[in-house]
Design a protein around this nucleic acid. Structure first.
Lengths: 229, 229
DNA sequence: TGCAAATATTAAGGTATTGTTAATAGCGAC
DNA sequence: GTCGCTATTAACAATACCTTAATATTTGCA
């Protein structure tokens, strides 16, 4: 029902600013979490896995720069974009933030419109279709074109629904390898899905129909695999 | 596997800023060389033939403007794009910079994402210009003339509104490739627009009307694609 | 063989995504 | 200013999709 809105962690020691930003972001539909210093930011980040962190540079306990550095060192968090809030004309701070791995910064005083458009621009970037998975997979008379989102089977071009395509594409990315339902859910549905695993069976059914009952095989008690033979 | 990364020469007399920029560019995979003034910049340029020069305007020994002028006079170096770093509201300096042959300038304070995207854009443009960036695209009875901003469809010449043209043109620039709405926003609307993504749908509607419901196809849950078939 | 567990299958409902229209705001030309 | 065109948004409709639940079938094993 409720769409999966981006989670944003806002970090600032000034409570009123925190509140203002929180409110503004909430209104846009973001899921907002807060922290009051760098240390809390680290904790929160590990807990909630935000899609983006908006962080003040100057803070007690642990400043933004240091928090940023630590987050960028951790494999689990280094890909989370970090946007710094800086006082105007803190040029050096900005450049240093850049070095620490920040993705952007926004000068105070904060203009809501600007804030929004920056955040959205950054988030948009991550929503680009993963370029790494753009190779087309070929197996005899089956071709999975990840660029066109099209499956070609025995000469015919088939439009697969998204989940079916992703599922097939995932399994076919490692032919022969058996994936458990849990692995499939992890990879095709994502981390926080609330889906019964019988759902996979249904998608498998549909795919098998379209592909003449070939390619996807059940390994009972284990999971599914893709096999070209 | 190691790609031939662009060489960038960074010229600034402030060593700490130089270091930070160097580090940041390195992280993006550029091969970075440095110089501390205009004179060194000339030397370095002749030696390493950088793909792009990022240069402060204000420097001792030889300022950026003068260095730029000299580089643009030399046949060997005049095609190397030069980007100036200028203090905020040095409008005059910017104008003078263009006169001196600069390709772009970036105002301090430097915004990381802006810096990167400008540099990449310039490098991209350079690569693109030689090949084919705004040639006219042809697909059977559809012709997209990017020079005249005109679409010819089944013999008739149609004047598309700007956004519709840009959208069609963008999708058609990589036929078959599916673009997510976010990618489309990023590329057609630009970096910092604040536009609801349903806007795309409306433009798509209008384009489809004009093109007889052909060419633009929806991939549900993913995005849109252009297909000539 | 028969039983239990795992997987298949089907159809139906709810939901997310897109389609479409119309209203509004903005911009430029005259 | 007014007219006309474009861009954007909002609101509603349409539909493709995903998921589930209920039931059937298969498989492994006692």
């Amino acid at each position: 029902m409720i769409k999966n809105m981006p989670k944003i962690l806002v970090v600032d020691d000034e409570l009123d600013i925190l509140e203002i930003i929180r409110h503004a972001l909430n209104k846009e539909g973001f899921e907002v979490h807060i922290a009051a210093n760098g240390f809390q930011a680290l904790e929160q980040t590990r807990k909630i896995k935000p899609d983006l962190i908006l962080m003040d540079v100057m803070m007690p306990v642990m400043d933004g720069m240091e928090a940023c550095r630590q987050l960028k060192e951790d494999t689990d968090t280094k890909n989370i974009p970090i946007v710094f809030l800086t006082a105007r004309s803190e040029e050096f701070a900005e450049l240093a933030g850049f070095e620490a791995g920040a993705d952007d910064y926004i000068s105070k005083p904060i203009r809501p419109r600007v804030l929004m458009s920056r955040l959205k621009a950054i988030l948009r970037r991550r929503n680009a279709i993963q370029s790494s998975s753009h190779e087309t997979l070929e197996f005899g008379d089956l071709k999975i074109d990840r660029e066109r989102f099209v499956v070609e089977f025995m000469g015919k071009s088939l439009q697969f629904p998204r989940k079916e395509f992703e599922l097939l594409s995932f399994l076919a990315s490692r032919p022969g390898r058996v994936f458990s339902r849990d692995e499939i859910l992890e990879n095709v549905w994502g981390n926080e899905v609330l889906v019964v695993d019988r759902t996979i069976d249904v998608h498998v059914r549909k795919i098998r129909e379209k592909l003449d009952e070939r390619y996807i095989y059940t390994v009972k008690g284990v999971g599914y695999k893709f096999e070209a033979a």
